[in-house]
Simulated scan of single mutants.
Amino acid sequence: MDRGQILELVAHYLVIVVIVTVVLGVVRAAVGDIGFWVELAVVVVIVALYRPVVKAVDMEPSAWKRE
């Protein structure tokens, strides 16, 4: 894995962190305190759905592509 691929992955991981932060903020503002386990479930769902969504819109980093 070269430096360019690592930088691509870092960018995607930063996007995941931003998405999780925004979604949890919106949920907390709309519903209030939802508890640790529900927040953890939201994070797991977001992380699990991120890669297929990014692949579907054809924006995945080169490290995720099969050779």
Rank of each mutant, 00 (worst) to 15 (best):
V18E: 14
V27H: 12
V31C: 11
G25M: 04
E60T: 11
I6H: 03
W64A: 04
P52F: 05
R66V: 13
W64Y: 01
V53C: 09
V53N: 03
G32H: 05
V43T: 08
L40N: 13
V47K: 02
W37T: 07
F36T: 10
L14R: 09
V54E: 06
P52C: 01
I6N: 07
G4K: 15
V27Y: 03
Y13P: 04
K65T: 08
E60Y: 08
E39P: 01
L9F: 02
V17L: 09
V45H: 02
F36D: 05
P61F: 02
A29S: 08
L40M: 12
R28Y: 15
I19N: 04
A11Q: 01
L9M: 11
P52R: 00
R3Q: 09
D33P: 14
A56T: 05
V17H: 02
I19K: 00
R28T: 15
V10E: 01
V26Y: 13
A11C: 14
V47L: 09
G32V: 07
Y50V: 12
V47Y: 02
V15L: 13
R28W: 14
I46K: 00
V23L: 03
I34N: 05
L9V: 07
Y13N: 09
F36E: 06
A63C: 15
A48F: 05
V22Q: 08
I6C: 13
T21F: 05
V18G: 10
Y50L: 12
V22Y: 01
D58Y: 06
